[in-house]
């Protein structure tokens, strides 16, 4: 690149061309397309970009896989705080006692039963309504991903049934509705080899 003060003889600055490569925006694209100087500068920065991408990939590989010891040791140190959510009262056996279960525990229950439904897996799940008020009408919103090839409507119905059953068994919530939204269809139920990177 021959230039003085980072400005090409045609008047374009190298700053403009560098930004153009990042954003695709420049004040005079017609000039850039036709100007040999601009094209030469873009070629040069473009060759650099190829090498930059190569270095990035190389260093990500050198960083190791997410299933290696270094990540395990980081994860062991994390001590993630629990997310209990709201307190959900239960009718105590002895009057005067206070019994509650946490929203977080109920969401974990829902995940565990829906994950056991063949062909499905749960994402975000919400209890809508005032769960702290005994008898209040509660709506369950569950996001579900279904594996490719599974009958979506039937799987969604199984998920709904499982959620209804576990909430009936394990809570005193007054469930008004259970909405199951299929948000994704997943391929490859059984991976040939586990890979850390997506």
């Amino acid at each position: 690149m021959s230039s003085t003060n980072n400005r090409l003889e045609c008047g374009r600055s190298l700053e403009e061309l560098s930004e153009y490569l990042d954003t695709g925006e420049i004040s005079d694209p017609g000039h850039v397309a036709a100007c040999p100087e601009c094209q030469a500068a873009l070629d040069s920065i473009g060759r650099l970009a190829t090498l930059e991408a190569e270095l990035r990939d190389q260093e990500i590989t050198e960083a190791g896989s997410g299933s290696d010891d270094w990540m395990q040791s980081i994860l062991n140190n994390l001590r993630l705080e629990l997310r209990p959510g709201r307190d959900i009262p239960l009718q105590p056996e002895h009057p005067g006692d206070v019994l509650v279960e946490t929203e977080g525990a109920i969401l974990a229950l829902i995940r565990s039963v829906t994950d056991a439904v063949p062909g499905a897996t749960t994402g975000r799940c919400r209890l809508l309504g005032d769960v702290s008020e005994p008898g209040a009408a509660i709506t369950v919103d569950a996001q579900v991903a279904v594996f490719f090839g599974e009958p979506i409507a039937a799987v969604a119905e199984d998920v709904r049934t499982e959620i209804a059953a576990v909430l009936e068994r394990q809570t005193e919530l007054n469930i008004a509705a259970i909405n199951v939204t299929v948000v994704d269809v997943l391929t490859q139920p059984e991976p040939p080899a586990q890979e850390g990177n997506q």
Partner: peptide, 19 residues
């Protein structure tokens, strides 16, 4: 192993819920 198959958005949803 099963979680490793899930897309980011689904994992984020579960993690927000406390998973």
């Amino acid at each position: 192993d099963r979680l490793a198959l899930l897309p980011d958005a689904l994992l984020v949803g579960r993690a927000v819920d406390g998973d």
